[in-house]
Design a protein around this nucleic acid. Sequence first.
DNA 1: ACGCTCTGCTTATGGTATACACAGTTCTGT
DNA 2: ACAGAACTGTGTATACCATAAGCAGAGCGT
Lengths: 246, 246
Amino acid sequence: MADKSSAQRTFELLWGLREQPTRGPKPSLSVEQIVQAAIEVADAHGLDAVSMRRVAEKLGVTTMSLYRYVPSKNDLLELMLDTIAAPGPDLSKMPEHWRAALHWWARQNLEAFRRHPWLVQFPFSHPPFGPNNIRWMEAALRAMEGSGLTPEDMIWLLILLSGYVRTEAAQELALIEGARVTGVEPQEWGRVYGEMLRKIVADGDHPALARVVSAGVFDAPDQGPDEDFEYGLTFILNGVEAMINN
Amino acid sequence: MADKSSAQRTFELLWGLREQPTRGPKPSLSVEQIVQAAIEVADAHGLDAVSMRRVAEKLGVTTMSLYRYVPSKNDLLELMLDTIAAPGPDLSKMPEHWRAALHWWARQNLEAFRRHPWLVQFPFSHPPFGPNNIRWMEAALRAMEGSGLTPEDMIWLLILLSGYVRTEAAQELALIEGARVTGVEPQEWGRVYGEMLRKIVADGDHPALARVVSAGVFDAPDQGPDEDFEYGLTFILNGVEAMINN
DNA sequence: ACGCTCTGCTTATGGTATACACAGTTCTGT
DNA sequence: ACAGAACTGTGTATACCATAAGCAGAGCGT
């Protein structure tokens, strides 16, 4: 977010508050089309591959045409971010109890990261305020309603949980990406890393690390991303429960 | 990390394993000088401002000269990352008990983010393997030694904790950055955001969010970054304690 | 029918990383 | 001592990037 006024502009764009013109030639594109094309590029080739030129090419127009619809690339990114959050979690499927509900919310959130791996690369610069991301926020808050947490705690827990999902997704996708580029199995990267650590601890200056390495933590085949995720999540939720009960 | 061989190359660069040439003219620069200049640029103007040209200018050489010392910009970034991690946490100051030790570690880690705000923008693409970052890892593992956690749990907790510090630092710095650019007080951004939310919840479609907003969570002056950080950290550590005791 | 506004386009500016060739410098092997 | 190899920093070139500015033509409002 460059400055306050651009935040305001982006806000209007996200909520469709900008009135569209009546005169002049009919537009050949729409904002939705452009955003969709950009998302497809990002899904297929990563966020770095999203350039105005590339998106324009995909739509068969020139680069500059896009600027008739989108004020800047930054705004396009914001629109992408909110678009993939559509339509937000299906509240009718959310479990009743706050713990199950939060668990469900986090899982849904993780799935979004899996569908759009470039999300982990996204340069978040402010809390969400697009309509769809707000729906995610609403869902999380609703999940916590019966928990007895204070509003402050709710917001804080939301931040912690979002951060956790993002960290875990980044972890998971770094493995996949490393594997994709080198053309080896996802475990390979872990093995390469393990080998690096083994070289490092050979000098004896890192006894604690050496113990962990020799315990085979980095040799064990990955127990699977879902298990990793559940592990940490359960842990966080246990903490919340303990907090509520005290 | 582009591919496996580049990972290997970066590893060698980080650990100073590349033998330097004996023939030819004396180098007028050193890798350390270049990394230092790049860090200064990043500290002063953000990670985006770090370009080969700008770093070269700062050193009074041409852009391409840098490539005699550093294989790519990516490697330069890796070197920056490890350099600001130097010399690693001072183990002699680490508390005895695992809980206090982890607390201390996380705080030290947060301070690093505060010293070098561009860290939150850093595109982490793999677990740490530079010598100084490894020392941080070693410190965290040593902190957990007396805790009774399994090696797997230790690694997992390390990831959780690192993620938490990063998320919290990002939160904190987004406020500062937003304030810096707009030239208003740090609270201003929170107020702008609160106003946006108020507009959003006016339609009645977000009851849970509305309740939180009207509870004044976004109006309350920020209780201060340290308190925020402690709040979440205490919570995580409580969770660890609960886990150990079960 | 005129004019204004809006369209998509072309062109230009100033930025990015980095590949490649080259002239000059210094060490190494003979 | 001296030739050749290796290494230095530089200049030039390629291929990107976001976006500002101006322009010809299209179509609505009057």
